[in-house]
Simulated assay, not measured.
Amino acid sequence: MTSTEDRADRFTRELAELKIPDPAAGRHDLWLRLGLTLMVAGPILGVVSYFLSHNTSDALVQRDAIVLAIVGVAVTVVGSAVFLRYSLTGFLRFWMARQAFDLAVLADGVPHRKDGSS
């Protein structure tokens, strides 16, 4: 058990040394929620514009509804990109730190020759 605790403590210490920003301390959650909100708001905007265009016979209002529907598609695409970026950031940050730690453990276990040959 001691070796496991030491390894976990070492991982925590080396993670702090890498100076990887803590996602909970920043605006990570705000951007994640904003992306999710935009992903939901885009299709809602599309449905609203559909009913707006079908409840009138005025061509000008129907064209406005078409523009509103295109804006809804754009909002959905932007929201999806923001959500994907910030949802993957946390995972990839931890993955990179874990890879660095595993490589350091592997390097500690491999004997090195002083003459430079392998």
Rank of each mutant, 00 (worst) to 15 (best):
T2Y: 06
S3D: 14
T4L: 13
T4M: 08
E5Q: 11
D6P: 00
D6Y: 05
R7T: 08
F11D: 01
F11W: 03
F11S: 02
T12W: 03
L15T: 04
A16T: 00
K19P: 01
K19E: 10
A25H: 09
G26E: 13
L30G: 15
W31L: 15
L34D: 02
T37D: 09
L38W: 04
M39S: 07
G42D: 02
G42K: 08
L45F: 00
L45Y: 00
S49W: 03
Y50N: 12
F51A: 08
S53D: 12
H54R: 15
N55S: 15
D58C: 10
V61D: 15
D64L: 14
A65K: 06
I66C: 09
I66R: 09
L68I: 08
L68M: 11
L68W: 04
A69C: 05
A69H: 11
I70A: 13
V71K: 01
V71C: 00
V73K: 03
V73L: 09
V75P: 04
T76S: 13
V77E: 07
V78T: 08
V78K: 01
V78P: 01
S80R: 06
R85M: 13
R85I: 06
L88V: 06
L88W: 11
T89H: 09
G90E: 12
G90H: 06
G90K: 11
F91Q: 07
L92P: 00
L92N: 04
R93C: 04
R93A: 07
F94A: 12
F94T: 08
W95I: 00
M96A: 11
R98D: 10
A100I: 03
A100M: 00
F101H: 09
F101E: 02
F101S: 04
F101V: 00
D102S: 04
D102L: 09
D102M: 03
L103N: 06
L103H: 07
A104D: 11
A104G: 06
V105G: 02
D108R: 07
G109S: 14
V110H: 12
V110F: 11
P111A: 14
K114Q: 15
S117Y: 08
S117G: 08
